[in-house]
């Protein structure tokens, strides 16, 4: 199946057809998710209304992990089978992943403030999310650090694969480190037992974030294919 998309111009055609559908799906899903989440789902007996932040925080955290793994898979395919589109997909996923990681951290600390009384607690999951953010920023910095884009893509694909092996190790170390410095007052983050009416908005929002990711990915891949064509046309002008 992969090779059917290998040809960039065919991909451009399919992408431009699919894009409006994906866009409408995202808007629809997000709309219903927000409506259910904000308007007709109960407040949590312990945390009250602040649990509504969960409908944004948890999907963002899921997306942060999802984007890093899909980036690693795309980079792997790009490196092993020299698949040009896979490299571009990895490069296009990074900013989306970084944005979701930052959102997860931001909403996490907003959610934590009423409970813990401080904006930031070195909770195991939040700290791992912070490290993940720097893995993303390192990737984005490396990919733009070379004049020759092919060099940038190759180096950063190797980095994201090295990073992928390290993510579980870092996660383990941070969890272990966190239990060591466990401040007594920390409330379990995922305290509220999710009853059925809360589950729906959560899943809808998660789905909306995924279609949003595909939407941005399609736009970015089309842009990267065109910028490659531009580079080749310019090179041809130079070399004649």
């Amino acid at each position: 199946m992969l090779h059917r998309f290998a040809n960039p111009t065919r991909f451009l055609r399919i992408a431009s057809i699919a894009q409006p559908w994906i866009a409408w799906a995202t808007i629809l899903l997000a709309g219903t998710g927000l409506y259910l989440g904000l308007f007709n789902s109960p407040a949590d007996y312990q945390q009250g209304e602040s649990v509504r932040i969960m409908y944004v925080h948890v999907p963002a955290a899921w997306m942060a992990m999802f984007c890093y793994t899909s980036m690693a898979i795309a980079a792997g395919i790009g490196l092993i089978w020299k698949h040009p589109l896979a490299d571009i997909a990895a490069k296009a996923t990074a900013p989306v992943g970084a944005c979701f990681t930052f959102l997860a951290l931001f909403t996490g600390s907003l959610w934590g403030k009423p409970m813990w009384g401080t904006w930031w607690v070195w909770d195991a999951r939040l700290t791992s999310m912070l490290v993940l953010l720097f893995l993303y920023l390192g990737y984005i910095a490396l990919i733009n650090a070379f004049d020759d884009p092919a060099r940038g893509t190759k180096s950063s694909s190797i980095l994201v694969l090295v990073g992928l092996i390290n993510v579980p190790i870092i996660k383990f170390s941070v969890d272990w480190w966190n239990t060591l410095h466990q401040p007594a007052s920390v409330l379990r983050m995922d305290g509220p037992s999710i009853d059925e009416s809360m589950l729906w908005p959560l899943l809808l929002m998660a789905l909306a974030f995924k279609t949003y990711y595909i939407w941005v990915l399609l736009v970015r891949i089309r842009a990267e294919i065109i910028s490659n064509k531009i580079r080749i046309l310019r090179l041809r002008q130079v070399h004649g």
Partner: peptide, 12 residues
């Protein structure tokens, strides 16, 4: 032995 086939199709 310079370029004989157009480049665009092959490696985008």
């Amino acid at each position: 032995f310079a370029e004989t086939c157009p480049m665009l199709e092959h490696s985008l």
